[in-house]
Amino acid sequence: MFTTLLVIATTALAAVLGAVVGFGLGHLAVRPTLRRLRTELADAARQLTHDPLTGLLNRTGLRAVHTTIAASGDPQPIIVILIDLDHFKQVNDTYSHDAGDDLLTQTADRLGRLAATYGGSVARLSGDEFAAILPVRHHGITDIADRFTTAIAEPVHIDTDHGPTTVTVTASLGIAVADSTEPLEDVALHRADIAMYHAKRHGGDRHVLQLPGMTMPDREHRRGPRLRDLHRDQRGSAA
């Protein structure tokens, strides 16, 4: 009887050990596949939230940042800056689209570093348009806007078909202060958009703070509909 029980126990133990060893070997075998899948998923997630040219966040990524801020605790004021480069089309027309992409990439690097110094995030929305979200802290809004305007206006060295050259572009900035729980695009960005168009209307190379009662300039002072304008119109929101 004792021998029978011993055989049964030994057989059961062997089966368990075999299962454990088999699972371990199987797990080791699939590790490379799991790592590859994790890498592919991370790459796919990044592609969904980042701009492929500049590496900055895209519109989806900016929404995710805003959602995180809104859900992080009590409502808090945030600074939203809409940045539109002045006369960027001239760079494309004069030096080629590749040179224009070079300019956008270098400008994006400056904006990303500057936003990070204030604990904020910046995204490329489309074309030559960027947006930043910053927390309201002890920094003055005017000082922040001045630093963004100055950083963009610094000369940029680009490669062209005729060799290296230096170009300088400016930007029109619209600034709005909103509550973190307010909708990003239909409130915060829309307010900043109105202010940005006022900066454009007055010649560019400046920043304008959105004030209560400020309305969008007449369409004759606007460049025409952009992708973001069309998307907002299709949702039925005010332009």
Rank of each mutant, 00 (worst) to 15 (best):
N92K: 12
P212M: 02
T39H: 09
G236M: 06
H87E: 10
R35P: 04
V156W: 00
D86H: 13
A15T: 13
S72Y: 09
Y118E: 04
R226V: 01
T149L: 14
S237H: 13
D218E: 03
R206G: 05
G100N: 09
F148Y: 15
R59P: 05
G26S: 15
G100F: 04
Y118M: 11
H162I: 12
V80H: 03
R59D: 06
V91C: 07
L227E: 10
D102L: 09
A29H: 15
F23G: 14
V21S: 06
R206D: 06
K200C: 03
E40I: 07
A188G: 11
I79S: 05
A178Q: 08
P225E: 10
L211R: 12
H157L: 12
K89H: 13
A70Y: 07
A131C: 03
R124S: 08
A178S: 15
L114Q: 13
I194A: 04
L173T: 08
N92H: 08
P164T: 00
L41N: 14
V91R: 02
Q90G: 11
D43T: 13
G204N: 04
S121K: 06
L41H: 10
M196F: 12
R110H: 03
T105G: 00
E129A: 01
I133V: 12
R226K: 14
T3S: 01
A195Q: 06
V30G: 08
L57C: 06
Q234S: 13
D186W: 03
H66P: 00
I78N: 00
M196S: 13
T149Y: 04
G120W: 03
R59Q: 13
L17Q: 08
I194T: 14
D51W: 09
S121I: 07
T60P: 00
L211E: 14
A171I: 10
V122G: 06
V91A: 02
R110G: 12
F23R: 15
T142M: 05
R110F: 06
D143L: 07
L25Y: 05
A239D: 06
H190T: 06
I81C: 09
F130M: 03
V21I: 13
D186S: 12
R201N: 07
D128N: 10
Q90I: 06
G213R: 00
A42W: 04
D193W: 00
H221C: 07
F88P: 01
A145I: 05
G127N: 11
G112Y: 06
A151E: 03
I83F: 09
G18S: 10
D102K: 10
R31C: 11
A71R: 10
V136C: 08
L209M: 13
S126R: 03
K200I: 08
L82F: 06
R113L: 07
A29I: 02
V16W: 11
Y118P: 00
L37R: 04
M216R: 15
S126F: 02
V169Q: 09
T54I: 01
R59F: 04
G204W: 07
V187C: 09
D161C: 04
I152R: 03
A151T: 10
L189P: 01
G61V: 10
